[in-house]
Simulated assay, not measured.
Amino acid sequence: MLIKIGTRSSPLAMAQTHHIMGLIKAVLPEAEFTLHAIATMADRDRVSEFHQFGVVGVFAVEHESQLLSREVDCVVHSLKDLPTSLAEGLTLAAVPSREDPRDALCGATLHELPQGARVGTGSLRRRAQIQSLRPDVEVVPIRGNVGPRLRKIEGEGGLDAVILAAAGLRRLGLSGSASETMDPAVFPYAVGQGALGVEARADDENLLAVLKRIEDPTARAAVEAERAMMHALGAGCS
């Protein structure tokens, strides 16, 4: 069975896609894959903040076009980037086991940050939460892949810390970069964070049967509850 998989071209997206390929291989050893990596609108524009795009699902809309045109058979998403309303004819076919959903502060712990520290994040949610806990800090908007963000606390950007997803650090083998993993009771994580989602066409019965075999029911139940709440609030990923 040949499966054409769509993904973003970032190191994290590729690591996540290879993880999904490994899960599929474990249940279907004869599976073969071709990767179709694209740069989404948010990948091409590394300057604008996410809320400035005026589009829900800036990392997903072009992938959904790939699916609908049958250029690919499925797409691997960071589930927090996938809108709660999918394009007609598409479905969230699999949610495998979830990684650590928490946020990580890299560069210093919350209490180690000096007065007036400069903290980088591209997320409105993280901005609001860090300023709620530390009103004195200056939040600096940053975009880009995990590696370049981390380098901004190593002299390139003059930042004291950056906030990233613990799951992304772990998937890239960079867990040691986290100075503190934030307690969700005081720093709630994003809906779907730490989970991967495999999106496919709703009528592709053969592939859906395969993807069902890599599903984690516990992870699915948790993220579906979170996504239902976000949908009811009319919110998006950040």
Rank of each mutant, 00 (worst) to 15 (best):
L82P: 07
T34A: 14
I3K: 04
V223S: 12
E32N: 08
A228N: 06
L67A: 02
Y189G: 13
L196N: 12
H18G: 01
G122Y: 11
R125I: 13
M14I: 15
S238M: 15
G116F: 00
R201K: 02
L2E: 13
S78P: 15
V191D: 04
V223T: 08
I3T: 10
S97Q: 11
G116E: 05
S238T: 02
K4T: 11
T34R: 11
R102S: 14
H231R: 15
R44M: 03
I38T: 12
E71D: 08
R8K: 08
D103N: 09
T109A: 12
F53I: 12
P101R: 10
C106M: 07
G194M: 06
G176F: 01
L150I: 06
E112G: 15
L105M: 08
G194E: 03
V95Q: 10
R8H: 08
G147V: 15
G144S: 03
P217T: 07
E88L: 02
F59D: 06
G234C: 08
M14H: 09
I3N: 00
F33V: 12
V119Q: 02
P114G: 03
V140F: 00
A166E: 07
G173T: 10
E154K: 09
M1D: 11
R102C: 11
L105C: 02
Q52L: 13
P83G: 09
A94C: 09
A209V: 01
H63A: 02
P83F: 05
V162K: 05
E180Y: 07
R227M: 08
G116H: 01
V55K: 12
K4V: 03
P141Y: 08
A165P: 11
A190K: 10
E112S: 15
A93S: 04
C237P: 08
R201T: 03
G173D: 07
L68Y: 00
R125L: 10
A222H: 06
A161I: 09
P141N: 01
V95W: 12
L79A: 06
G197E: 04
R151C: 03
A39S: 11
A209W: 02
P148E: 14
A94F: 05
H77F: 07
A39N: 15
M229H: 11
L35W: 15
R220N: 05
R213W: 04
G6E: 00
S97E: 13
